[in-house]
Every structure is written in C-alpha cells, then in structure tokens.
Amino acid sequence: MTVTDPYPGASLPLPADLYGRPRRDRTLRLLDAVVDARMRWTALTNRREPTPRADDRRIGVRVVERRIRAHDNEVVSLRLAAADGRDLPRWRPGAHLDVELPSGRLRQYSLCGDPADTRTYRIAVRRIPGGGGSEEVHRALTVGSALRVRGPRNAFPFAVPGHGSPATRLRFVAGGIGITPILPMIRLADTLGIDWTALYTGRARETLPFLDEVERFGGRVTVRTDDRSGLPTGAELVDGVRGGTAVYCCGPAPMVGAVATALRGISGVELHSERFSAPPIVDGVPFEIELARSGEVLAVPADRSALDVLLAHRPDQPYSCRQGFCRTCRVRVLAGAPDHRDSVLTPAERAAGDLLACVSRCAGDRLVLDL
C-alpha cells in the first residue's frame, strides 16, 4: 500500500489531544492526575496471580506399590497415592503425568491403570541404559518415596467411535513400553463393546510389560516378537486395517513411522500416535544459535535439534519430552526468525519470543537465545 502526503513539503505539528486542541487547562491536568492515581491504586489492590490451569497443579504423592512388569526385570510399575490421602484428579485414556524426580529431573510417564480409580495412579518405566530419568526411577524410588507430579495431561486423547470419531472399529498397535497408554484404551473399548483388535510387538516375550494383562483379552490381541518373526514391516503392523478404522499406535519412532507410511495407501482411516523418543527431523537445514550472555555461537546441523546441540555444551539445560509438548526446554529468542514446530505455544507466547528447543528451528541463519 502506498500512502500519499496531501500536503507535500509541509511540516505539521501533532495535535495535543484527540480533537487537535492544546491542553493548557490546569484543572483538567489535575483531574487527569487524580484519575490516573486512582486507576493505579485500583489495579494494585485488585491484582491477583493468574489462575493456573487444572493440569498445572503440583500434587504431592507417595509410592504405595512397586512391581516388576517384564520378565527381563527392566520395567517397573509404581502406584502413586496422594500424600494427604485425598482423591486424585480424574483422567482419561492416553493421559500422562509430569513426574518431578528427587534429582529435579522432570519426566513424562503415561498413566496405565484404571481411570475409575481416584485413589491411585499407576505408571511404568523401562530402564534405558544411560537414561538419567529411567535409571533414577529404578534405583531411587521405593515404596514410601515422596514425589510431586503435575497433571494429568493428555497429548494422546482417545476418541471413542460414535462419540468424537466417525470410525466404527479400532486397531491398537503397541511396541514394548508403548503399551502403557494403549492398555487403558483397550480396556475401555472392550467395556463399551466396540469392535477392536490389537497388535503387541517387541524384541522378545520377556521384554513385554503387562503381557499377562494384555493376553487376558484372548484372540483380539496378537503378540508378535522380533526373535521369532523378525522385524515387522509397516504392512504387517496394519494387516487387516480397512476404511472406517481408527488406528492408535504408540512405540519407537521407526515403528510409528512405518505404520504411518503403510496407512497412506488406505482411505478412510484415522491415525492417532504417540512416540517415546524424539521425532525425526523433517526438512531440516543447518543454522546457528548464539548464546547472548556469553557470545558463544553454536552450529546446529540439518539432522540435529537445537536442544541436542545445547546439551552437548550445557548438560544442565532443562528438557524432558523432546517432542514439543511439555515446555520444559522453553528458551527465549532475542533475535532471529524462529521456525516453530511445536503444537502448544500460544501466538502470544511466540510473539514474546518463546521457543521449544527440542523441535523448533530457525527460518534464517541464526537465532540469538537468552542463555
């Protein structure tokens, strides 16, 4: 748009008020001062802290049960009860808790118990070699341990066919510890009499947690292990899926990717998925991040995240989910054009400079971070 000056060459003074009249009246100026002081006082006396979201509540809990859930002894389940004995907030299948570990680490674990149980939560954790959070859970948490949790939150909601989903049947695909959010979904689908099937896969039977609970559903569930059948293809994971099916998939990133690729050739299918590792970087290009407080410049390759590079230089940099929904790795951008790839930051937060380093990138050459 081009703006033309109607008075070229003229230098026009700005009006002193809305109507173009100078304000020299002392009475009006005094009245303005009184009104301004009154408004400031009203704002001060009525100021309140923002009301937190329900799922931002920090709840004190204690461990009331600890059980081994896989024959390889690498998966442990914890049952948590409120420290004050009260009922816990309700949740729906697919929900998870943000767990504050004694070390200060924040980790997300899916709820895998009964949503109707308001007295306890159940989570399960597989030990990952070198994984600080999972090893801490296995090493340090015993019956009686005190923790704080936030939530429940749901980044993997279950839409019941006929109530939020046009699908008429369900297919569940779980890989290893990926059974944890899927298990409550299976229970609900079975209780409601919905047409469903499930494929549960892993390295070997001894590595599969909650295998006894899953196999109680009989012929609806197929258990497939790599040691007997080899690595599954995407086509094998979705074998029998046709139009009108909603697929719920959780597990390692390669498995989730294989399912997504296999379903592209089938029309009328919904895919709902959650992975327990960082998503692959798509269309990544290299860029730089500058740490404003030190002036250090770090190179981010096309196939690595800004968080990966930050952790290599700052091991204490906070992070958790690595998937762009928990906000733990949030940083402030002081300069540069962010390429936001999360799904949780609001437009106002992005405008204020917030960025999730685990998934988002740069639309230019460099981001300057307040670090």
Rank of each mutant, 00 (worst) to 15 (best):
G230R: 06
F287Y: 11
S11C: 06
I281E: 03
G336Y: 15
L192K: 09
G133F: 13
A70H: 07
R122V: 12
V214E: 00
L356G: 08
G104C: 10
Q108Y: 13
S294N: 10
V269R: 05
V143A: 14
V309I: 05
D190R: 02
F210K: 01
F172D: 01
A348Y: 04
R48P: 02
S110Q: 06
G175L: 00
S343A: 15
A146S: 05
L369G: 09
T168V: 14
V368Q: 12
V241W: 01
A278C: 03
T261G: 07
P280T: 13
R150C: 13
E288H: 11
G94N: 06
V125T: 11
G132K: 15
C112S: 10
E296M: 13
S165G: 11
V259H: 07
T51R: 05
L345K: 12
V285S: 02
A16P: 02
I179C: 01
E213K: 13
F325G: 07
G364K: 08
D190N: 12
D303V: 08
S320E: 01
G251T: 00
S273N: 13
Y19D: 06
R105V: 04
L369S: 12
A351L: 00
D303G: 14
D32K: 09
E236V: 09
R105P: 09
P161N: 14
T45E: 11
S134A: 05
G251W: 00
P115T: 06
P129L: 13
R69T: 09
G9Y: 04
V35R: 09
H313E: 12
S11T: 13
L355N: 09
R228C: 04
V331I: 11
D190Y: 02
Q317N: 11
P115V: 07
P93Y: 14
G133W: 15
S11H: 12
A299S: 15
G336N: 11
A363W: 06
R29P: 01
E213V: 07
T118Q: 10
A146I: 02
T180G: 03
A83Q: 14
V256T: 05
H272L: 09
Y19N: 05
V221L: 01
L271C: 01
A299W: 02
I281N: 06
V214Q: 02
W41E: 15
H272Q: 05
A352T: 03
R366I: 11
L231Q: 03
V99R: 06
R264D: 11
Y200K: 02
R293Y: 03
C362V: 10
L188K: 12
G9A: 11
F210P: 01
T222Y: 02
V331P: 10
R122K: 12
L30G: 13
V173Q: 08
L231H: 15
R341Y: 12
A16G: 08
A159G: 06
S277A: 14
R216P: 00
T45Y: 05
Y7K: 07
G202D: 00
L307W: 08
R350Y: 12
L78E: 00
V75F: 03
L371Q: 07
A10D: 09
L88Y: 10
G144H: 14
P184S: 01
S343W: 05
T180Y: 10
L183I: 07
P184N: 06
E296T: 12
A37Y: 04
G60I: 01
L12G: 10
C112W: 14
A95M: 11
G132D: 10
T27R: 06
T225H: 04
L14E: 13
L271P: 00
A348R: 08
R224D: 00
R275P: 04
A174H: 00
D87R: 13
N46C: 08
L291W: 05
D308I: 01
V238T: 15
